[in-house]
């Protein structure tokens, strides 16, 4: 009990120290450290916001074992760019209903941000955004995926994403008949 109490006090002191800093340090699965503005992290990620509020942020680098260094670098980069690009008025209104507001088309810089990513980097970032509860980044990356599908035939989509067609010909025929209203094969 005594030991626990002592530990609790140390934790308290560390929390205070943490509260004084305006950045948080994040540690990727491969041990690399990244600094990100505390304000941006809390605003853009529900998970980081929860960790900051709950005092579970580690000064020496909060372990994010699920996220590789390349993806985490992109996450941090996105947070910084986001902080710099949004006018303050929009920021205020967006923070009110960030999760409930209807989807807004990606902005120019957000498009560029995801366009430069390799196929694997894009999917790593989708997974990182999902893990960290970053609604906007998840929307922007998911939107990018949809654009990679848009206007393409099923064969072309399978090729882009390496999707294996595991249907039999008979099954495919059955689906096309069942959903003829979407295919116009009637």
């Amino acid at each position: 009990m005594e030991v626990d109490k002592g530990k609790g006090e140390a934790e308290e002191t560390r929390k205070v120290a943490e509260a004084d800093r305006d950045t948080v340090t994040l540690k990727s699965s491969d041990g690399k450290l990244f600094e990100v503005s505390k304000e941006a992290a809390a605003r853009l990620s529900t998970v980081l916001a929860g960790m900051i509020a709950g005092g579970s942020i580690d000064d020496n680098g909060t372990d994010l074992k699920q996220i590789g260094s390349e993806a985490l670098e992109n996450v941090v980069d996105y947070c910084n760019k986001h902080a710099n690009s949004i006018p303050s008025a929009a920021l205020i209104s967006s923070s009110i209903s960030f999760n409930t507001a209807p989807f807004k088309e990606p902005e120019e810089w957000e498009r560029k941000f995801v366009d430069r990513l390799s196929h694997d980097a894009l999917f790593d970032l989708v997974e990182a955004a999902n893990f960290l509860g970053m609604e906007r980044l998840l929307d922007v990356t998911c939107h990018k995926i949809s654009e990679m599908m848009k206007g393409k035939s099923p064969d072309q989509i399978r090729e882009v994403f390496n999707i294996k067609n595991d249907y039999t010909k008979e099954e495919l025929e059955e689906i096309r008949q069942e959903l003829a209203w979407a295919f116009y094969d009637d």
Binding site: D120, V126, L138, I145, S146, N162, I163, K164
Partner: peptide
């Protein structure tokens, strides 16, 4: 087989929620 042997299928590895979010933009 459309998929070249050995190539990873990243999109199918996504969770349903995320995949639904992506295709709902279509």
């Amino acid at each position: 087989r459309v998929t070249p042997a050995g190539a990873e299928c990243r999109i199918n590895a996504l969770g349903n929620d995320v995949l639904l979010r992506a295709i709902s933009f279509l």
